[in-house]
Amino acid sequence: MMNTINASGADSTEINQRLSQEDGEFFIEGCLGQRFLGAGMGSGKHIRISGIPGNALGAYLNGAEIETQGNAQDAVGDTMNAGRIIIHGNVGDTAGYAMRGGKIFIRGNAGYRTGVHMKEYQRHIPVIVIGGRAGSFLGEYQAGGLIIVLGLHDDGKPIVGGFPCTGMYGGKVFLRGDASHVSFPPQVTLRPAEQGDMDEISGHLNDYCRVFGLDSARILASPFTVITPNSKNPYKQMYVTN
């Protein structure tokens, strides 16, 4: 059964209380900047949102699925553990901060610091797919997981802003197309994606394309660039015991 929550005039806490009362399908209509929606919520909930949710949408998400028809703001999926967040528009800064599991699918562009400090552990591998372009500091301190940027935007801007992958020491970043014009720090390596790399992401891309009604064959047909860190112990040589 679909539970419809009218968000106009309601604050974040009221909406979250409604969401936590039971599992099932929810539709939040008229959302206008309410923060923290779905924070920490577990599997068994599918939350669709119309309007614009506020910051920290799906923070600490623990298995629920959140889908928003428009844009989302900052800190989407902050420290998210499991579940899926689907954004049909653009997202603000720090989406997927310290995310350790689950997926964030963004149809449009992402702001600064997307996927900062993402990490993985055994089978918990977080995935962020950005349809358009990403802002500066993409994957800063990335310690695990997959960040995929498709560059389907058409405003002529570069696929990623400045200083991507700074301090990266785990995981992989995939940029669709040639990334030779992008300046990367010395502690990461760029190479064209091979079949093994593509096998790693093709399942996620198929899911992504299914969600947004895109042609996965066309997207997968372009070459991808993979960025990986040179070391999982980047600071080993930096210190001397005193």
Partner: peptide
Amino acid sequence: MIPEGTDAISPAPHHDIYSIEDLRQLVIS
């Protein structure tokens, strides 16, 4: 919840906190 043998790096700032308002966001979240 990180792989064995990997450094565990805590960055100097929380990269989502640049102000008291941002701190408030983490507190309330």
